[in-house]
Design a protein around this nucleic acid. Sequence first.
DNA 1: TTATTAACTTACTTTTGGTAAGTCAAAGAT
DNA 2: ATCTTTGACTTACCAAAAGTAAGTTAATAA
Lengths: 121, 121
Amino acid sequence: MENSEKKFADSENCPVRNVLDRFGDKWSTLVLLVLDDTKVLRFNEIHKMIDTISQKMLAVTLKSLEADGLVLRTQYPEIPPRVEYTLSERGASLIPHIKSLVQWANANFEAITQSRAAYKK
Amino acid sequence: MENSEKKFADSENCPVRNVLDRFGDKWSTLVLLVLDDTKVLRFNEIHKMIDTISQKMLAVTLKSLEADGLVLRTQYPEIPPRVEYTLSERGASLIPHIKSLVQWANANFEAITQSRAAYKK
DNA sequence: TTATTAACTTACTTTTGGTAAGTCAAAGAT
DNA sequence: ATCTTTGACTTACCAAAAGTAAGTTAATAA
């Protein structure tokens, strides 16, 4: 009995599951794209660019991206505080892969929208 | 005043936002990968391969993938029922882009895990 | 003295996802 | 004839994740 049927089970040890758990959240990928687009951004600047994200979720998203070593956080000892976010090298290395997905998205956006509308049930 | 700061706002009309909203759910991408891996699968077979997904979420995930035209559903008029799922052409065209992400995941899995452990705060 | 500012937290509510049981219709077992 | 099994789901209820709004901090400006 082969267990090819278990290839994706067990998210602890499966890199695929692990990374999908990581980026299958609502905001991480978008934040990375925004940082790639503008290189250096402060908290409130990111918040303006993605205006539907809540401050709370932006805070936790940035924190987990930082924990994963994808984003660098630089804090200046001033008041009011100033904090700058940038992609790390590792974060930057992810971008081309995300952009390849984005290209597909742009190419298929219309067709998908139409399928969705036609599906209606 | 330029509004480059609004490039990613408004998820209705932004293909990037739209597609990330679509795949920023917990299961869609995994289901696509599993279907790519085995080509034709029945409901319960997918459920076994991704054993942590609930039947409920597998059902809604498959339904939305079908609505988007990424997955094809074939129902045989038998009892007990038999339903087969496959990738559509459109779904198949997405796979290479997802796999490029997966490769990155495999390559960076260890380093990320270590960063996470070191972060601890 | 009070307002302002940036980068967050905190308390509370809503949405999304998980769990377990139920449905449907026929074939096979008792 | 009634009971059980089977596969692909629903449904009702509960827990976890995300959204909302208000609060915190410390210095400078009004």
